[in-house]
Structures are given as structure tokens and as C-alpha cells.
Design a protein around this nucleic acid. Structure first.
Length: 218
DNA sequence: GACCAGGCACATC
DNA sequence: GATGTGCATGGT
């Protein structure tokens, strides 16, 4: 743990918060809706996910019991706007089956599981990788874990903060080893990084002059 | 019409 | 262990 990295991480957070304000994440009404959103947003624009979630809400499928009872084919057709709908339908089914197998269908019971054990179990569900798992842990269950996504990787890669490889676990360690383990902070920080990424750090664009991190970045 | 979006599993070398 | 590929829609 180096003091300079900790200082810079706080500095970045302060700049982002001053520039963008609170992001009010996750955009979901219930724990289950957040879980569904986390799976549906895999490599997909959020506006497409909103359409799919709207369909699920209209069909009254935004609870584990009801989703368990619907056919894979019907579920896939409802989430079609979110893309990869066949795969994502299976992933939703996998997760629902997991909730019933491990927690008798109770998200409240699931929430009582300690972070490390819960993360391990969620990661064992087929279709749930580290980002989806951590999004669920942080945003649905309020567990203190930092979510790393493509935006975060791009932003850090273009900022002289971390040297060396930027794989998921290492990057997550950088944030978690230098910041207090506060779910509220992790929530806002990740949301702000996504906000920054959407505006200034797309795949083909470098940080431009208007970027709030520009002055101490590249 | 190309590119992109809040990934992941699986095949192949 | 690293790298490549399939999965798919809708907005810019």
C-alpha cells in the first residue's frame, strides 16, 4: 500500500464527483432487478437492457419464483432487445436455479452470506464472471467490493496511476488496497468511472482536453 | 455500413 | 497460460 496511490485515487474521485455529482447507481428497483440488469448488461448498451427489463416487468417476471416458472424460449424472446438473448436467458435461468438451490429462493437469506463465500458461490454459476459477480455483490447486496469494467481498465491504462498488467484481480486490488472498504464509496466511484468512460474514454478515443482527469493524465 | 456497448465460456494452440 | 471466437440487439 503506497500513500501516493491512495492519495491519487482520492484525488480522482473528488474530481469526478465535483464534475458529475452523484450517479444514483444501480438503476434498479429491487435486488432481483439489479441482478437481472447485471446479467443483461454484459457487453451491451444500457438502453437496450432497459427495454428488456421493461418487457420482464410487464410480464411480471421480476422475481425469482416467476422467472423460474417461465420457459427458456419465452424468457429469451422477452429479453431480445438486450442482445445475446439466448445465452442471457440461460444465464438468468442458471442464476435463478442457484438462488433456489443455495438459498431456498430467498435473496434476504443470500444477503446474510459473508462476502468472500458469496463471491465464490456466485462465480461458480455459469455465465457469471468477475464483473457481473462483483456488480451483484456491490449493487444488489451492498457488499464492499470494487467493480472493474472495461471503462475502468481503459481509464487506468491512459493514466499514469498503475504500471504493469491491468488484469481484473490486480486492478481490483489497486482500488481495494488503497481505499476504505465502504460500499457507498465503491458504488459511487465505479459509477463515476463509467460516466467518465462514456463521455471521454471510448475504445477509439483518448482522453480529450475537456476530460476532468486531463491535467494530471495524458 | 461500420463501430460500439457497464462480458463470458469455450476451443485451440 | 495466452489468444481467438461466438454470441446479437439497437443507437450513433
Amino acid at each position: 500500500m503506497t500513500a501516493s496511490v491512495a492519495r491519487e485515487l482520492r484525488n480522482i474521485y473528488r474530481k469526478l464527483y465535483c464534475r458529475f455529482g452523484p450517479q444514483h447507481w444501480w438503476p434498479g428497483r429491487t435486488r432481483f432487478e439489479i441482478i437481472v440488469g447485471a446479467i443483461l448488461t454484459q457487453n451491451t448498451n444500457w438502453t437496450n437492457v432497459e427495454k428488456a427489463i421493461r418487457n420482464l416487468r410487464q410480464a411480471r417476471l421480476l422475481n425469482p419464483r416467476r422467472m423460474q416458472g417461465i420457459s427458456l424460449k419465452k424468457l429469451a424472446s422477452l429479453i431480445r432487445p438486450s442482445g445475446y438473448y439466448n445465452i442471457k436467458a440461460r444465464r438468468l435461468k442458471n442464476f435463478v436455479a442457484f438462488i433456489f438451490r443455495e438459498y431456498d429462493g430467498s435473496l434476504a437469506r443470500m444477503a446474510r452470506e459473508p462476502l468472500e463465500i458469496l463471491r465464490e458461490k456466485i462465480l461458480s454459476v455459469s455465465g457469471i464472471g468477475p464483473e457481473t459477480a462483483d456488480s451483484i455483490l456491490l449493487y444488489a447486496f451492498d457488499k464492499p467490493i470494487f467493480v472493474i469494467d472495461a471503462y475502468t481498465q481503459r481509464i487506468v491504462a491512459r493514466h499514469p496511476l498503475v504500471k504493469g498488467p491491468l488484469d481484473y484481480d490486480r486492478l481490483q486490488g489497486v482500488f481495494m488496497n488503497h481505499l476504505p472498504h465502504d460500499p457507498k464509496l465503491f458504488n459511487e466511484y465505479h459509477a463515476l468511472l463509467v460516466r467518465l468512460g462514456k463521455e471521454f474514454c471510448r475504445k477509439t478515443r483518448l482522453l480529450c482536453d475537456a476530460c476532468p482527469l486531463r491535467e494530471d493524465g495524458k
